[in-house]
Design a protein around this nucleic acid. Structure first.
Lengths: 212, 212, 212, 212
DNA sequence: ACATACGGGACAGCCCGTTACT
DNA sequence: AGTAACGGGCTGTCCCGTATGT
């Protein structure tokens, strides 16, 4: 009672899988070579998708970038930062583990590709307002997750010397910058160093901080 | 008996000026739109240079990028960071002033173009080893200048809790990351926040900060 | 137990209305921008029709063109020329009124789109024999209507100096050419001028024209 | 001590020849298939020109169309209409000869390609203001040449019953329309018919035509 | 030192048509 | 009858680099 003979090669419509494949390929390519260096043909070839199909799902290259930001980069930030920070005992613990995890992942791989958000942020922020907006949103959510956790820490007795928002900004900035340096030097050293510094900064100081 | 009247003569043999013009234009274009988004024709048009002349000075586009890194970006880092840090009273003072100066400069202008070194670093580090090398060198010099000054501070009695190299890395990373966020948000707020945090961090512990 | 609520139901099975909408949209688009400049997607979007539905009614783009010629352009010629000429008192009167009506219609609208038959004739006559054939047929019917009326006029006492077929050809050619010039100049002036000339030509010789 | 062996294939820069080749090919292609049906690749292949060279001389396809209008179509109108009309004994004679020449030329060839000006006029007048402007200019010059000659005829004793401008418009419109019909029917018959009618119209009234 | 002409190959986007599916 | 996914190929444009010419 098979509806279809196995021999006949048929096209099977599976838009979600195709869309997923395209975004996976594009996300990797954008991170490896950047947005402008990645041609739509590269994506098509790599994802095994024809031009017509690609154009059906993403009318322009920018649409791919937007979807990558929304459905891949945001998700990556969520998985590697937001969720771990929230589930960590304290922010300091979370950050330490996140840095350590990132370093381990990079050491496993050969090349340091850098932070996907940062890569696209620097390349596209000035190029297009829509993309910039999306990028900003991801940065905001990232920062807010840390802010929230810092406040929770404070409420739990771990006092901080500075406003939670500011500390969160510092953390995000330092991570981003360390990633940029790691990419430029092709070494995880900057990440390790910055992890230590941030840990020291976030560690409750032995005695009450004088004031400020 | 010249075919063209002297008045219409446009060609002024001044290779150095031409080279300078090309690099100025390219440096700005690379920062505004990135390396790949800037075509050689853009540069030619903007600099008022023909293809032949451009090719005479820079055989390839990569050569322009290299020259921009060596003669413009390195110089910018030298002027905005290395020299000020060296001539400052302490690292903390220097950094505070540098951040303040950067913020002021950005506020004057409309758009936040980001750190030229960082921009090119993220776009080109993986694309070409020569360029990556050049970028790494600039990062190194930058960090070393801070390291040296931190050591001098320490010798002068201002103690630091962490190795000078590590603190320098943190400073560079934080500045780079803050610049990335500033570019993404088109706001100088991240720079201001990070400046405050770095200042607190570099301030000798145990006693009240002088003022500010 | 439908998956979609009845309110959101959009699909109204009305093949004739859909077909009519497609042809209306296509006829206008072909006249405004030409056949080749109008994409099937333009038509689909404008008519609110999906690709499959369009393909169901018209397997190819050429089929749309054929249908537009047969069911829209031919009809337009019939309405604006053939019927008015037949029902006019004399050919001269009919032509005068037709030109006047056309001028009035164009003056009302902003742009002079030109004669739909002429537009498609010049663009498609050489491209496809079937289309050319259809176009020729419409031209023939147009000319024959005028020829017949001229003969009737002659039988009624209004003599003509030339064969009716030739005069009809002249009228059609002059109208077409005047329309082309009107389109090129975006002005109805050529039509007005040619209308006067044709009127003078068709006016019975030998005695003074009554008026106008 | 020859600098180079004769066997080596050399590139010889001949911009004018290349430009001429491109325009010749484009003019023919635009007339045969129309502007939109002619791809730039067609032109490149046919003219033996590479993409880079084509782009150097004509940055856009529209630039090719403009040049074709200015340097080929305008020239064709000048050669086939303006010059002959001016050098003819009377307008009537000139028009008769021009129509006859056109018919002869078309009969020689297999296909009736139509009037190049008219073809482009109908296809491009609404598409682009610059092109429309150029087309209008050519129409104007054409009409003015006839107008001028008509006035000269009048001064020489051959009276006309209508303003010279109007008669010129009629002539141009009738020729254009006859050409459109000729193209649609792939026959020179409409041209012959219209030639006779125009001749009769331009013949001074009141006395029998000499002969022919 | 500088200018113009040119070579090829890519780029993103769009085209028309078809096929799977409801 | 109608929808959405999909196939490839083509479009105009632009790219960087080089060769020819002054």
């Amino acid at each position: 009672m098979a509806k279809r003979p196995a021999a006949a090669r048929k096209r099977t419509n599976d838009p979600q899988a195709m869309r997923r494949r395209v975004l996976d390929v594009a996300a990797l390519a954008f991170q490896s070579g950047g947005y402008h260096s990645t041609s739509t043909h590269d994506i098509m070839r790599e994802a095994g998708v024809t031009g017509g199909a690609l154009h059906h799902h993403f009318p322009t290259k920018k649409a791919i970038a937007l979807a990558v930001l929304r459905e891949r980069v945001a998700q990556a930030v969520e998985q590697t930062w937001i969720a771990p920070v929230r589930s960590a005992r304290t922010v300091a613990d979370g950050i330490r583990d996140i840095f350590a995890g990132t370093v381990a992942a990079l050491d496993d791989r050969g090349r340091v590709l850098g932070c996907p958000l940062n890569n696209l942020a620097l390349e596209l922020s000035l190029a297009d307002p829509d993309l910039r907006n999306e990028i900003e949103t991801i940065f905001d959510r990232w920062r807010e997750a840390i802010t929230g956790k810092l406040r929770a820490d404070g409420a739990a007795g771990t006092e901080q010397s500075a406003p939670a928002e500011d500390l969160a900004t510092l953390v995000v900035a330092t991570y981003s910058g360390a990633m940029a340096m790691a990419k430029a030097e092709q070494s995880t050293a900057p990440l390790k160093v910055c992890a230590r510094q941030l840990a020291a900064l976030l560690r409750p100081r032995g005695r009450k901080p004088s004031s400020r």
